[in-house]
Nucleic acid binder design. Structure first.
Lengths: 204, 204
DNA sequence: TCTTTTCTGTGTTGATCGATACATAAATGA
DNA sequence: TCATTTATGTATCGATCAACACAGAAAAGA
């Protein structure tokens, strides 16, 4: 039924992963179709037949990235028993992942397309949506901390979530500048130093 | 002596400022020569005669940006009497500047060229150098705090400077996502909440 | 006035951009 | 065996990229 016609001679998922790695390293606009096809090991007609367009390929690549690279980092929020440990582990995993030298440094979602171009409007919108989802995930973990009594009732979940999301975004740029894992951990130390003040009983 | 030949019919500094604004909004690769010449009000031969190349124009534009847009923010480090107030004012001025709606959001130095391309190696190198200089400025202000007795002798000036520099970089991405000044101030609040822990007497 | 120098506008260069036309190859269904 | 369907490789499309050739225009120096 669905296996009519000449079968595909390449692994679609493997090609998608290589495209994702190239987008990760060079950004949406920086990765050309010629570079993509070379990295994917296919010719451009095969790319367009399998993925539709450069834009559609990028959107699929970011979804793949979210599943393959983001899961471990964000799972820290659910695994730790307290919000404090959850945020700290989340940042520590970020520091480790962003500084690995066997892959591009920093985050595809944060760095993939920061300059809104006429040809990349949907790309920017999609990445912004994913960043907003990340912010929501942090806020909901903090709200859980409030619900469980770990954090005071008046705790500014939204503001604190914004702070930690912003720190993680900054770590992407820091990693792109070649920062080591220990240098990124200095940022984590600074960010977590804020915790006891923010979570203190006499603070909003 | 130097006024031989046909005089230039455009204001070189005004053209440079418009080029800076376009690079600021769209990044180095995202701003094309055609868009630049339109924004600058000149034709491409005039651009090349006056500035040399797109790369040289960008380098000059970033220097202009540093002088015109960065001075007020970074002057906060010298104006405040204590390191704590210096950092806080520095971040507050950052929040206000990055969220202005009459100019591009975020920082040209942080966002101008994050993906190292074969054609933009010198650009990335220059922006990295400027970011490193900013980190140094923060560290030296903290070291002054140690010298003046405000901060303990074992204070990790380098690590804390890295933290605050990273926060500022993250604020550029946050601003690009449309964050308001008050949203950026939430990040400042979080970052400054770390201070009393970091500067406490029983912390390295 | 006349040469020299420098800038301006038009038009164009080869290279590269994202995306396809086309013919051929390899599978299934009849 | 043969029509149908889908994938592949070659070769190319018009558009845009950064950069420049060229000739005319506008200044200074002689």
């Amino acid at each position: 039924m669905s296996e009519r016609g000449r079968p595909r001679t390449f692994d679609r998922t493997a090609a998608l992963r290589r495209a994702m790695e190239l987008f990760w390293a060079k950004g949406y606009e920086g990765a050309s179709i010629a570079e993509l096809t070379t990295a994917m090991g296919i010719n451009s007609p095969s790319l367009y037949a399998a993925f539709g367009s450069k834009e559609a390929l990028f959107l699929e690549a970011t979804e793949y990235y979210t599943q393959a690279e983001g899961t471990e980092i964000w799972a820290a929020l659910d695994e730790a028993p307290t919000a404090c440990q959850a945020i700290e582990n989340f940042l520590r995993r970020t520091a480790k992942a962003y500084s690995q030298t066997d892959r591009p440094q920093g985050c595809l979602i944060a760095l993939g397309a920061l300059h809104e171009d006429s040809s990349s409007g949907a790309i920017c919108t999609d990445l912004r949506r994913r960043r907003a989802e990340n912010l929501t995930a942090l806020r909901e973990r903090l709200e859980r901390g409030v619900a469980e009594g770990e954090l005071p009732a008046g705790f500014d979940c939204d503001g604190v979530a914004t702070f930690y999301a912003t720190v993680q975004h900054g770590m992407s740029i820091q990693a792109r500048d070649g920062a080591s894992c220990s240098a990124l951990m200095a940022t984590v130390t600074g960010a977590m130093a804020a915790w006891q003040t923010l979570a203190g009983p006499d603070r909003a």
